[in-house]
Simulated assay, not measured.
Amino acid sequence: MGCAELLKSVTECVLLAGEILSAEWSLPGGPRGHGDKAEVDVEIEALLRKSLLALLDCDFWGEETGSRLTGHKYCWVVDPNDGTRDFLEGRKGSAISVGLLRDAIPVLGVVYAPVTSDRGPDCISWAEGCGNVIRNGREVSSRARLRTLSPGSRVLMSSAAANNPTINAQLCSPADFVPMPSIAYRLARVAAGDAIACASLVPVSAHDVVGGHALLKGARGVLLNQEGAPLTYDSVALMTRASNRCFGGMPEACRDLVGREWQRLF
């Protein structure tokens, strides 16, 4: 089964997992957990691990249930709830992220935010062999998109950007910056055309970004590290820490952002 044929079944698995995350959000006392750990995260990853390996029995890299790395050509990469801290603090926009690597290259991605502040449930997906990125069952054209940072374009930053709006506005200028949970969902929304680029200014692991990285490939975008090099996943070290900072989106915009003085925020 090719990646494009696999995508429908993977999306169904992720949507089912999203029902669990949505129900957890709606608990009368709020989601269970504290800090960076929500109790539902392990439950969702266990479900996804079982269902994804039933679709394609290969290697697996998860945030909560550990890894199985045998040298297989393919590897599932799963984050059951990217943006857990924001989720537990009551911010909408955390997301389930599933990616598939083939020879350490992203070839499939599904990112699903079941609870968002502006769109309702939002599922964005792509796989090698598909044409454009798919959003909630419909293809999204990548034509006529802005390619450079310009007035009216948007750069998606972490929720923490709201704590320092002046410097973030300067660093993203002439684009506007938008604070938003979950690097996985920020990457997905850039791939779907909601923004020209996004960033994470803290270290990310493979589970944070592989799903979104695949979506960017479908949108003719890139995912660059703090030095402006493409993210890679061909060692355990790089799976554990893929980059210290990352910038995803249209190539020219990302290269511009890499060179800006982000240390000013720290």
Rank of each mutant, 00 (worst) to 15 (best):
S153Y: 06
G152E: 08
V155E: 09
P151G: 01
S159G: 14
D176T: 14
L171E: 01
A169Q: 15
S150V: 03
T166R: 01
A175V: 05
P174G: 05
A161G: 14
R147H: 03
C172H: 07
D176K: 14
S173E: 15
I167R: 07
P151L: 04
N164Y: 01
S153Q: 07
L149G: 06
Q170A: 04
S173W: 15
S159N: 13
P151F: 01
F177R: 14
P165F: 01
R147Q: 07
V155M: 09
L149Q: 12
M180Q: 07
N164H: 00
P165S: 00
P165R: 01
P165D: 00
S158H: 10
F177N: 12
R147K: 05
L171M: 02
D176F: 13
D176C: 11
S173N: 14
A160K: 04
R154A: 04
P179S: 03
G152N: 13
S173G: 13
R147F: 00
A175G: 09
S150A: 07
M157V: 15
F177G: 06
P151A: 00
P174T: 10
L149C: 09
M157Y: 04
M180Y: 08
G152L: 09
R145Y: 02
N168P: 00
P179M: 12
N163H: 02
N163P: 02
M180E: 08
S159T: 09
Q170L: 14
D176H: 12
A175F: 11
A169D: 08
R154L: 11
A160S: 15
N164F: 00
V178N: 11
R145P: 09
L146Y: 02
S153N: 06
T166E: 11
G152R: 13
